[in-house]
Design a protein around this nucleic acid. Structure first.
Length: 388
RNA sequence: GUGGAUAUAGCGUAGUUGGUUAACGCGCCAGAUUGUGGUUCUGGAGAUCGUGGGUUCAAGUCCCAUUAUCCACC
């Protein structure tokens, strides 16, 4: 029965501006501001982008949304500390949206030091060996303490090549965990002292590379009517062809009018191909990790700045790039900094790479809104493959 | 000038009583890395062992000469 009470302010919105094939360009509105999609989330696992970037730097490289990690922040400094400091936004002095990963990926990446039960996962801390138990309720409570804009469901990211019986059990458990996440976050969002009472929950599709398990799971979680969905468990050992195939299988069974996030992906080419298939949120450690290792992205492919051929190269990483590294510095100088293990070298390389990714996403949005996405994607991929 | 020491890959070194394709670190080159365990991992190229002679079945290794460098002394 309808009441006359003032309707609650909607804590989020998702407005699709343009479609081009399966690709879509949209504005995702949150209590922390808007995100224009497709978007690349800049990975700040421990509340900082590795390589020495500050919140102020993120404004210069076009970051729309940052990604932090529940497991890592639980261990250090502790979600209770972040909560006392006013939540992750105040703690980092980053006002724009933040998505927190649930710790589900650590179930995969720390497979040697954890044990899975129905209740949750027992980890052995990689820092000091201490025991840490994390179940769906714990992950939600930690994420609520952090007060991120978007919380991710606590799932199990299973290896891509796991066998059917294992994947069936794992996915069924991940579904049960999702129900527990929903119930717990609903409760937490009602509490008066919660940092962000409009915190959103995204569900995560799993199923390795087994089509029918993936599709059934996608249908099942779509019924739960969450504000957004993710495809997890990819880029963990399968081929690119297998990854694209899974996306194609699953997308028709997830809500087309909601944001779709492909977790942990990927290379510029992976992103271009996934956008083509309907994905609009991404994150990946590549631009930051590769930057720290001296690999930088350009429209003509990836460069290894440590190579000798850059010893006296007076050009910027990429002609015309407006990032803080390219506006002032030569490849020769950056190579020297990286060789000499100066912090500045990593910092500039990471800033360039994230600027590159963020700019790529802006180009993608523009191409979609002008209905020329396929041609744009094909041409961009071709140029990057052909190299210098 | 006298005495001593050292010469092995671009740099720094290891190499046993002489014994197969001379080893290692850095550097160089090329890969890898996908919801980050913060400087990682895997390959590869590169040496007439200062030079000339000698001993020996066999010399980076022993002997002689020579050159260069370093140290001490006059």
């Amino acid at each position: 029965m309808e009441t006359n009470a003032t309707p609650k302010m909607k804590p989020y919105g998702y407005e699709i501006c343009a479609r081009d094939g399966a690709a879509k360009s949209a504005v995702f509105s949150t209590v922390h501001g808007e995100v224009r999609t497709p978007v690349f989330m800049n990975v700040a696992t421990a509340a900082a982008i590795k390589g020495g970037l500050s919140a102020e730097d993120l404004e210069h490289i076009g970051t729309q949304i940052a990604l932090c990690n529940t497991y890592h922040l639980r261990l250090r400094p502790g979600d209770d500390i972040v909560y006392r400091m006013g939540g992750i936004h105040a703690f980092m002095d980053w006002k724009k949206p933040v998505l927190t990963d649930s710790g589900g990926f650590q179930v995969f990446s720390l497979a040697d030091s954890r044990k899975i039960t129905e209740e949750g996962v027992r980890f052995r801390s990689h820092i000091d060996g201490a025991r840490l138990f994390m179940g769906p309720e714990d992950s939600m409570r930690i994420q609520s303490h952090l007060g991120s804009t978007i919380a991710m469901a606590f799932d199990e990211c299973a290896p891509a090549l796991a066998e059917r019986s294992y994947v069936e059990d794992s996915v069924a458990r991940t579904t049960r965990w999702l129900m527990r996440c929903i119930r717990e976050l609903r409760r937490l969002n009602e509490l008066p002292d919660t940092v962000n009472r409009a915190q959103l929950l995204f569900g995560i599709n799993q199923g390795a590379i087994i089509d029918d398990i993936r599709v059934e799971h996608a249908k099942r979680i779509t019924e739960l009517d969450l504000p957004g969905y993710a495809i997890g468990g990819l880029a963990v050992g399968e081929t690119h062809a297998q990854m694209y195939h899974v996306i194609e299988q699953v997308v028709p069974h997830l809500p087309a009018e909601k944001p779709l996030y492909l977790m942990g992906v990927g290379t510029p080419e992976n992103i271009l191909e996934a956008v083509r298939r309907g994905v609009d949120f991404f994150d990946c450690v590549y631009p930051s990790r590769n930057g720290r290792h001296g690999h930088v992205y350009t429209k003509n492919g990836k460069l290894n700045l440590l190579n000798k051929r850059f010893l006296t190269d007076e050009r910027p990483i990429e002609e015309g790039c407006r990032c803080p590294a390219c506006k002032r510095h030569t490849r020769a100088y950056l190579r020297h900094l990286l060789k000499a293990d100066e912090m500045l070298g990593k910092r500039l390389a990471v800033m360039h790479n994230l600027y590159f990714y963020n700019s790529l996403m802006a180009e993608i949005r523009e191409a979609i809104s002008e209905h020329r996405y396929d041609a744009y994607a094909d041409e961009t991929i071709r140029r990057m493959r052909e190299g210098q």
